[in-house]
């Protein structure tokens, strides 16, 4: 009999991979949590609710929520057709449009603000200001600036949402008697709805936190064009570090609240 021992093959449990994945995945959440923690626990003399007694801050909070939600809606309205066309069709210049739509993400907010200011000094911009609405240093301007930022993110997600919705099923729907519009609404849009909700949330979030374009294009006038993000800057610039930090915590809390609400709403919505 051959007495040589059976070669022992080490079992590959893949445990190392799982461990690496967990450690790798934990890094970024750890960074974010640490930053939040530091902001929240920095010793300060202002209570968390103290700024609420200031009418200017109450105004800024309301304006922030109102304009960012409006900007989110407008951004989604702009991003949906844009994402649809980018997802469904390939045309000459497709790549160019694709890159163009990345630029608002890349460009510093300040540059977007300057560009908006310059636009409203052109004949076309002046015409709009005279006959439609005043944007420069006014509330519509805040919404516009936030929309420009938010729509860039929303377009990416809307395209992804429509990438995941079946064009073929829309075709089948048409053979079943649906018009092109019905096929879009009942098949493609219906399938993309969660992705589009995600697009709206991201658009809203980036609008809520937008700072650069707003401060340049609309300034930050107390009780007129001051939103939370510019309030934070304002408080910092007059050396009011404590209040700036409290307002930052407010922004984080409000954002978390809106995100929770949207998710809950989205889950219950029946289309």
């Amino acid at each position: 009999m051959d007495a040589s021992p059976t070669p022992c093959v080490r079992r590959d449990s893949g445990r190392a991979f799982v461990a690496m994945a967990v450690i790798g995945a934990a890094c970024y959440p750890a960074i974010v949590a640490t930053l939040l923690f530091c902001t929240a626990w920095f010793p300060r003399e202002v209570t968390l609710w103290a700024p609420w007694s200031d009418p200017a801050i109450r105004y800024a909070t309301g304006l922030s929520l109102g304009t960012s939600l409006a900007a989110g809606v407008v951004a989604l309205a702009l991003a949906t057709p844009c994402g649809y066309v980018l997802s469904r069709y390939r045309f000459p210049g497709w790549r160019l449009v694709d890159i163009l739509l990345y630029l608002p993400i890349v460009m510093p907010g300040l540059v977007i603000g300057v560009s908006l200011l310059i636009f409203f000094r052109t004949p076309m911009g002046r015409f709009i200001e005279e006959h439609i609405a005043t944007f420069t240093f006014a509330i519509p301007g805040i919404i516009l600036a936030q929309t420009v930022v938010g729509a860039a993110f929303a377009t990416r997600l809307a395209k992804l949402a429509f990438d995941g919705a079946s064009r073929r099923r829309a075709g089948v729907a048409q053979t079943l008697g649906a018009s092109r519009w019905q096929a879009f609404l009942h098949v493609e849009f219906a399938e993309a709805r969660w992705g589009l909700l995600e697009a709206f949330v991201l658009a809203w979030a980036s609008a809520f936190g937008a700072f650069g374009p707003i401060i340049l294009f609309c300034g930050t006038t107390r009780q007129r064009t001051e939103v939370l993000s510019t309030s934070v800057f304002l408080e910092f610039s007059i050396g009011n570090l404590d209040r700036a930090l409290v307002l930052s915590i407010w922004m984080g809390g409000l954002a978390a609240l809106v995100l929770l609400l949207t998710r809950a709403l989205g889950k219950r919505t029946v289309w």
Binding site: R168, T175, L176, A178, W271
Partner: peptide, 30 residues
């Protein structure tokens, strides 16, 4: 003619049922 005007029923290879609808919703789609 547009697909909906043709009265040609099409059952594609992977069936392409509408995932956002129930079985009844699919059957009643037309």
């Amino acid at each position: 003619l547009a697909p909906r005007q043709r009265r040609v029923g099409y059952v594609p290879q992977d069936y392409d049922l509408f995932p956002t609808r129930s079985v009844e919703g699919n059957v009643r789609f037309a």
